[in-house]
Design a protein around this nucleic acid. Structure first.
Length: 670
DNA sequence: CGGCCTCGAGTTCC
DNA sequence: CTCGAGGCCG
């Protein structure tokens, strides 16, 4: 090939490929396209095949794995891999810091470094003169299993250290790190296992550990394992003074260190970090179960020493687990206001992330069976996005199991035959007169749409059961005496409810429209329709084409609206509401406001100190601005208060302006 | 047609 | 909050 000697070209290719691996797997900033990379890789493999004498253990071609070996050798660590003392409360960290201070017995400052505590599999890598020679699992801390062949397949582990021109590598270096499986890779792995009819893996940590201990390293190579390197064990020819320096050194020499590492001047700052990271953990794309805090200075670490293999200079701060196991008692089905059937799990109550969970949604039949969840299973429950509980899947191995879940063929409330429209994930009860729909529509009306004070879901359910309530007009014909006859209703609460209902007649037109439960017409679309047509009379009279002319409304929504008004039952409902005095015309105050912030779009996240969320929204809308939920490239700015959510992170990534409370106030002043 | 961006809908707990 | 799907733009 172009006259270059094979050995030289092989060296060149290996360097190029490892350069790319580093940029792709360590820096996450690739330069080469996949096709270019593949070309280089194929060329190298061809050359090595043609010249077997050039093959070497640190060639990137060795990363694809090799045929099964008998078993793993035991390997003694050069320096013991200790375990960490745990802490779960901030007081324990304060006590630890006091202990550190007392033992050091000096006035010199103590700095700390915190790093995310990765939920994976701990390993030790040995480099001699800059080359990876072997690596082992943690084992009992003294001796682990030699999984070198498998480690070579992990692209973010450098086979050779990156050295500056003329730099001498340390003669010996033991690097400590955590092998883990990113959540995306975990999901793919389980899909693949399920497709092959094999048992899914219960969590990413087990999957990572299992993948690492495959006797056939080709299997390991096919799993998207990655590494975060967090420290140095034994070394020769290396002079570092602090852990923070060590992390920088590792990063410069091609190792993948976690970008979440932080240096702190005080224990209070460490405690703040522990709280902050608990909120950020959901955004990471891999599992962490806490933070590791270390005394930064090696000199101080040496004075502190260890107790029973546990260094006195480090602590593992662990959060309350955000997943837990419990028994799934029964799968129930609820019918929503649109007729959609929603399966939900009745669980043996269990504490997850500080709250007790007893129910969780199961979405739809497909989802349940993809996860292979069945009644009676022990399941893993997780609070996703910090709030809503999810059933992740069954715990293995299975006991004797019940049958896979089937959606009922008939509606549990009205007995109508259940349908599943083509291409949709949801099953539906097609009966428009199904009691569930009437009930759920009423709940939607009093809660979401009209926001009636003193009247909520419980009220509606009770009156429904007493047969005092079947439709929205019924609500406006209720008398206080009817309520006080019911158990649990005093004069005052009855009067409050009646008054709230009466007052809700003044709610603006678009809220009434929203409350009618027209398919695809939610809060925003109801406003658009109200502004555009001005009255229900006009809206009911216009053609589908005219509805479709409204911005943001396409053929699907327009058809649904036109169809709704073509139904006599619905127009009768509208007429009744009108007769009862509800507002079915656009009021002056409903018109969109033109102001200094017209055309601008804001997103609010976290809590401001001096204003509620509603106040912020109202103030912005007064000036003509729009307030939405999701951050996108079109967002003018994000207003971030304390403990902001994932929206802030997204705003940073998209380069959207971020305003704090002061910035928001300035905005109002113009 | 693909890729955003929005909206609708369902949901949990205290 | 998240998922799914409609609407719109390039």
């Amino acid at each position: 090939m172009n006259g270059i000697p094979a050995d030289e070209r092989v060296r060149e290719l290996r360097e190029l490929i490892e350069q790319h691996n580093h940029r792709y797997y360590v820096l996450d900033d690739p330069e080469l396209s996949d096709a270019e990379y593949d070309r280089l890789f194929d060329e190298l493999r061809a050359l090595e095949e043609a010249h077997p004498e050039l093959t070497s253990a640190d060639s990137p071609t060795q990363r694809v794995g090799a045929a099964p070996s008998e078993r793993f050798r035991k390997l003694r660590h050069l320096q013991t891999m200790g375990s960490l003392e745990k802490a779960t409360r901030s007081e324990e960290l304060l006590k630890w810091a006091e202990d550190v201070r007392r033992r050091l017995d000096s006035e010199e400052p103590v700095a700390f470094v915190t790093e995310p505590k990765i939920d994976g599999s701990a390993i030790s890598l040995v480099y001699e003169n800059g080359s990876f020679v072997r690596g082992a699992t943690r084992g009992d801390g003294e001796e682990g299993e030699d999984v070198s062949r498998n480690l070579r397949t992990i692209r973010s582990i450098p086979l050779a250290m990156r050295l500056a021109p003329g730099e001498e590598p340390p003669a010996l270096l033991e690097v400590r790190g955590e092998i883990y499986l990113p959540l995306a890779g975990f999901g793919r792995l389980n899909e693949q296992l399920a497709a092959e009819g094999r048992k899914p893996s219960p969590n990413p940590r087990n999957a990572a550990a299992g993948s690492l201990r495959q006797l056939d390293s080709r299997i390991t190579a096919a799993r998207p394992l990655a590494i975060w390197v967090y420290g140095i064990g034994a070394s020769e020819g290396l002079a570092l003074e602090t852990h923070w320096q060590a992390l920088a050194w590792l990063r410069e020499h091609g190792f993948r260190t976690n970008p979440g590492a932080e240096r702190h001047e005080s224990i209070e700052s460490v405690i703040r970090a522990c709280q902050e990271w608990e909120r950020r953990r959901a955004e990471l794309g891999y599992e962490i179960d806490g933070l590791v805090a270390k005394v930064d200075s090696y000199a101080q670490q040496a004075i502190l020493g260890a107790l029973h293999q546990r260094p006195r200079w480090a602590r593992a701060f662990k959060w309350a687990p955000s997943t837990a196991q419990t028994t799934l008692r029964e799968i129930h089905v609820r019918v929503g206001r649109t007729g959609a059937l929603n399966p939900w799990a009745e669980l043996e109550p269990v504490e997850v992330g500080g709250v007790t969970i007893s129910t969780a949604t199961l979405h739809n039949e497909e989802d349940i069976n993809r996860k292979d969840i069945r009644e009676g299973d022990t399941v893993i429950v997780q609070r996703a996005g910090d709030v809503i509980p999810q059933v992740v899947g069954p715990v293995l191995p299975y006991p004797a199991r019940s049958e896979p879940f089937r959606m009922p063929a008939r509606c549990p409330l009205c007995g109508a035959e259940i349908v599943r429209p083509e291409g949709e994930a949801m099953h539906r009860c097609p009966n428009r007169a199904c009691p569930s729909r009437g009930l759920e529509t009423l709940i939607h009306w009093v809660q979401a749409a009209m926001d009636i004070e003193g009247v909520g879901e419980k009220f509606v359910r009770k009156l429904w059961a007493a047969e005092l309530l079947r439709s929205m007009p019924d609500l406006y014909r209720l008398r206080a005496e009817q309520l006080t006859e019911l158990e649990g209703y005093g004069e005052i609460s009855a009067r409050n409810a009646i008054e709230g209902i009466e007052q809700s007649k003044q709610q603006p037109f678009f809220r009434v429209l929203f409350g009618l439960n027209i398919p695809y017409v939610g809060f925003v679309t109801a406003q658009a329709l109200a502004y555009h047509f001005g009255s229900i009379e006009r809206l009911a009279a216009v053609s589908q084409e005219e509805i479709q002319a409204v911005e943001g409304i396409g053929p699907v929504v327009a058809e649904a609206v036109a169809e709704w008004f073509a139904d006599d039952e619905n127009t009768q409902l509208v007429a009744e509401l009108e007769g009862l005095g509800l507002r079915l015309e656009l009021g002056e105050e409903e018109r969109p406001i033109e102001g200094s912030l017209s055309g601008r779009v804001y997103v609010i996240t976290g809590t401001l100190v001096r204003y509620s969320r509603a106040q912020v929204q109202a103030a912005l809308e007064q000036l003509g601005a729009k307030v939405t939920d999701a951050v996108s490239a079109k967002t003018t700015a994000v207003i971030a208060g304390e403990s902001p959510g994932s929206k802030l992170e997204r705003a940073r990534r998209l380069g959207v302006t971020i305003l704090d409370e002061q910035g928001f106030e300035q905005l109002l002043l113009g």
